[in-house]
Simulated assay, not measured.
Amino acid sequence: MAEVFVCAGCGAGLTDSLTRVALPARTQQRYGHELLPALMDQGTYAVDPEPSGPPWRLWDTIGADEAAARGVFAPVPSLSFGPAGAILVAPGDTRGTVLIPERCDGYCLGLDGRAGPNLACADCGRAVATRVDDCTLWQVVRLDPTAVHALPSGGPDPIADWTELTRDRRAAPPIEAPGCWSPHWEAAVADALAHLLAASGGDRVGVPAGLLATTFGRALDELFPAGPAEKTLALAGPGLPTPAPGAPDIVLVPQHPQTGEAWQPPAGTAEAVPLAADVWTYLAFHDDRRLVPAPGLLPGGILRDDPLPRYPWRAFHPDRRVLLHTLSRLPAVREPWLRAIHARLGGRPS
């Protein structure tokens, strides 16, 4: 159902009409040293289930038991003890807010929200949200769930079924101009890689050649000792053949862009690992085969209009920050072998 968010103090409208979607994997990402676009697509919002904003507590002051009760099972630098359930919206979808000047702190080129809510309701002055738009951070406004209310603004939005999503095939390209790997891909692969590590049970995983090996295989080779593969990985999902029982052992499946639920293979076939739907779609249906040059010349008056494919200027690296964030919230990370991987990743320099 489409909703608008209003101030809990005076009822003034604070957003356009928005539709809920799944929380993007890149929410925890920091990328480059420039201004990034909006985290959320226009007209959408997502809910962050974890606490966010100040106060923060260092890991040494929390303890493993208290952190586990919060769903964090491996050491992290710090944890927020602010309100849980922030509503994430694109800055351009906000209305009726003003900046709180004394809370406009940032690191470099904008606001990073370190001081807490920095946006107030223009009508009553109540602090209602935190705007983040500093360099390396996806631009977003995080509405404080204790300071806003949601009101229906339209009828229920239809949830696309897997057949419809397969037909649309909305894919995110992996390479952006002028030859950079997409940060969305780096975050989505990192999030899926954490689940893939847990699903492996510590066994080395073999990955098919191609883009799947480029994005997942290299990282798995670095994280596991050298040796023969004991488990196999493949893609599975709507529009692809049903995997046979036991071959492959693990499948990457699409994560529904609206609900966040993963497509499930038939019971007893393979263990499913969720991957952002637009990244999965590209891996599943994009043809990366190169054309073979044909003999002869083009007829006169015919111009080439097909651009050459983009090639990356460096190797693909899953986003380490996203990988660590997801790993630390999987119960499997308490296994010694996976905790050792978590520790290795956490100890590496950027």
Rank of each mutant, 00 (worst) to 15 (best):
V4T: 11
V4W: 00
V4C: 02
G9D: 11
A12E: 13
L14I: 09
T15W: 12
T19F: 00
V21P: 00
P24C: 03
P24F: 01
P24E: 02
Q28L: 02
R30A: 07
Y31Q: 14
G32R: 10
G32Y: 07
L35R: 15
P37W: 06
A38L: 01
L39V: 03
M40C: 04
M40N: 03
T44D: 02
A46G: 04
P51K: 14
S52I: 04
G53E: 14
P54F: 11
P55K: 13
L58S: 14
T61L: 10
G63S: 04
E66P: 00
R70D: 10
F73K: 03
V76M: 11
S78K: 08
L79E: 12
L79T: 10
P83Q: 14
G85P: 07
G85V: 06
V89L: 10
L99G: 15
G106E: 04
L109I: 02
G110W: 00
D112R: 05
A115W: 05
A115R: 15
N118L: 12
L119F: 09
L119C: 13
A122E: 15
A122N: 02
R126Y: 04
V141D: 06
R142V: 02
P145S: 12
T146W: 09
V148T: 15
H149A: 14
H149C: 10
A150Q: 04
A150L: 09
G154N: 03
P156C: 04
P156G: 04
D157I: 03
P158T: 06
L165M: 07
D168P: 00
P178F: 10
G179Q: 08
W181Y: 11
P183N: 05
V189E: 03
A190I: 03
D191P: 00
L196V: 05
G201R: 03
V205Q: 05
L211C: 06
A213V: 00
F216T: 01
G217F: 06
R218Y: 08
L220N: 08
L223F: 07
E230R: 15
E230C: 04
A234N: 12
A236W: 13
L240E: 11
A244C: 07
P245C: 09
P245L: 07
G246Q: 11
G246I: 10
G246C: 09
V253Y: 13
V253W: 13
Q255N: 04
H256R: 08
P257T: 05
Q258V: 10
Q264Y: 00
A267G: 05
T269F: 13
E271D: 11
V273C: 08
V273R: 06
L275E: 08
A276D: 14
W280V: 04
Y282D: 12
Y282A: 04
H286W: 09
D287E: 11
D288P: 05
D288A: 14
R290C: 02
P295M: 09
G300T: 11
D306Y: 01
F316P: 13
H317E: 15
P318S: 07
P318H: 08
R320K: 05
R321K: 03
L330M: 05
P331K: 09
V333D: 02
E335P: 00
E335V: 02
L338T: 04
R339Y: 08
I341W: 04
A343M: 01
R344Y: 03
G347L: 07
S350Y: 01
